[in-house]
């Protein structure tokens, strides 16, 4: 189980004494309040600026940025080529404030090769285009197993790949960040970028999922 990766499930066996979840959380919250108080009182940070960082990641930077990049690549061959050659440069207009950080690399899925991104040493993730990583990406199970038994990991996401497909794992051990360019689903010919972007899931850009299939009428 994921107990060790998720504090919400960490104290289920402590019903009988006062180290239960509520007191643990309030102890954590007290430490966080202390941390923030020290930063503010010592003049390192304005409280409004700290709140604005949280708001930025809650409302402005997220996988919708990556989804638009993917949809553009699916509809514009010149953009696709530019993205695969220099993703940081090509993606910049889609980023928050019109920028994404350096060293972004896009890797393309094909019928012969499936790409998947992990960070075994910490939890490096392409924040600029996908936002903050989900808990599973930071989990010990994912970090330990993705480089060794990715097909078993993919099955836990409900993804089953052809046996002969190459599985290519990118372990983000430096400041290079990877996003996966998934394959465009069949049956989406003529779709607008906006409609296509709605098919692009966060997990499909990490390589643990595939884009949604178009619902309704298919050719």
């Amino acid at each position: 189980m994921a107990a060790m990766t998720d504090h919400h499930h960490h104290h289920h066996h402590h019903h009988d004494h006062d180290h239960g979840e509520a007191s643990d959380l309030s102890e954590t919250e007290l430490r966080v309040r202390a941390l923030q108080t020290i930063l503010v009182e010592k003049g390192y940070a304005d409280p409004a600026a700290l709140d604005a960082i949280v708001e930025t990641y809650e409302t402005k930077i997220g996988p919708h940025i990556g989804a638009r990049i993917v949809a553009r690549a699916w509809t514009d061959p010149a953009f696709r080529a530019a993205l695969l050659s220099d993703a940081a440069k090509a993606s910049a207009p889609f980023g928050h404030d019109g920028k994404v950080g350096d060293h972004l690399v896009a890797v393309e899925n094909t019928p012969e090769r499936h790409n998947m991104v992990v960070c075994t040493l910490c939890s490096c993730y392409p924040w600029d285009v996908l936002g903050l990583p989900p808990v599973w990406y930071k989990s010990f199970a994912y970090r330990s197993r993705a480089v060794k038994e990715p097909r078993a990991v993919l099955r836990e996401f409900g993804v089953s790949l052809p046996e002969q497909s190459e599985i290519r794992i990118w372990d983000s051990t430096a400041e290079v960040r990877y996003m996966v360019l998934p394959m465009r689903p069949a049956g989406t010919e003529g779709w607008s970028e906006e409609r296509l972007a709605a098919l692009v899931t966060r997990d499909s850009m990490i390589g643990t999922g595939l884009p949604h299939e178009p619902s309704g009428d298919r050719p």
């Binding site: 994921a2 599973w136 060794k148 372990d171």
Partner: peptide, 10 residues
Amino acid sequence: GGMDGFGRVE
């Protein structure tokens, strides 16, 4: 990387 024992990805 490569360790066992952490269970399923959830």
